[in-house]
Nucleic acid binder design. Structure first.
Ligand SMILES: [Zn+2]
Ligand SMILES: [Zn+2]
Ligand SMILES: [Zn+2]
Ligand SMILES: [Zn+2]
Lengths: 131, 131
DNA sequence: CTCCTTGTTGCGAATGATTCTCATAAGCGC
DNA sequence: GCGCTTATGAGAATCATTCGCAACAAGGAG
């Protein structure tokens, strides 16, 4: 459920998320806040991120290690990501082709309520160069 | 590291995985084995699945809820999945469109060593009906 | 501005998946 | 069979995430 009151905690989390370079875990965001002198509780960070994600102000994905990572995105429209597995640099992608493919394949198999997970990982230009 | 000895436990896990309808979690596979009268330990199930995945005899992915799911696939060739988020029923998919899109978009952004995670989740025909 | 009503917070406990420890059991080459 | 290792199993340990609940504070009413 969406929050009904405004608190500095929730605002702090949003700001910290925007400032973060790429995708961050709740744990790391909490650490960053604490390091910055904030006293927001860990549970609150989780709750705030959940809210942001719910409204579409944040995107989330699962790291290969199983952690849930969040990111403040440019657009609230549905999109996907191309993430540098080295430095975290992220590009937002429109993937009409994939959306269509997903729906087509889904219904072809008689599945309903199709959802999809589509993420690209690679080395960004600078990290590629630094190889 | 790959195991150097053959044990009935590892074999039991492999068989149970093949018999499973679709993707299963280590926990559930262990439950199934126990229900079937096997005494394999949970830790062993995790180890066995890790080995199978390492050799490529099993595919793994993370459910939206963050659990790691395994499955014994028909082909060892690269492919994707359409999974029922209710019963685990799975269809293997060839996705040339996606492969091409991934590479195209990746290089357009100057990224190299592009890898991708593409999975579809939904409700299979029978689970849809049971709604 | 002050007082209430309630949504929120924060802490620690609870949960759940996965991993680790290590004593014991059991492959397998001889 | 014998012995050397490796694999197993039971439970402890680890980690991310969620809960429970008393104390707190945002915001509206007066
Ligand atoms: Zn990079
Ligand atoms: Zn999409
Ligand atoms: Zn189903
Ligand atoms: Zn692919």
């Amino acid at each position: 459920m969406q929050p009904k009151r405004n608190t500095w905690q929730r605002e702090a989390v949003r700001v910290e998320l925007v400032d973060a370079p790429g995708f961050v875990s709740a744990q790391e965001l909490h650490r960053r806040l604490k390091d910055g002198g904030s006293t927001v509780g860990l549970a609150t960070v989780y709750r705030a991120l959940a809210h942001l994600a719910e409204v579409g102000d944040a995107d989330s994905l699962q790291s290969p290690e199983g952690e849930t990572l969040f990111r403040s995105c440019e657009t609230t429209a549905h999109h996907h990501h191309l993430v540098c597995r080295k430095c975290g640099e992220t590009r937002e992608l429109a993937a009409t082709v994939v959306e269509e493919w997903a729906n087509r394949v889904g219904s072809k198999h008689g599945f309903t309520e199709i959802g999809h997970v589509v993420d690209l990982f690679g080395l960004c230009p600078s990290c590629s160069a630094a190889e």
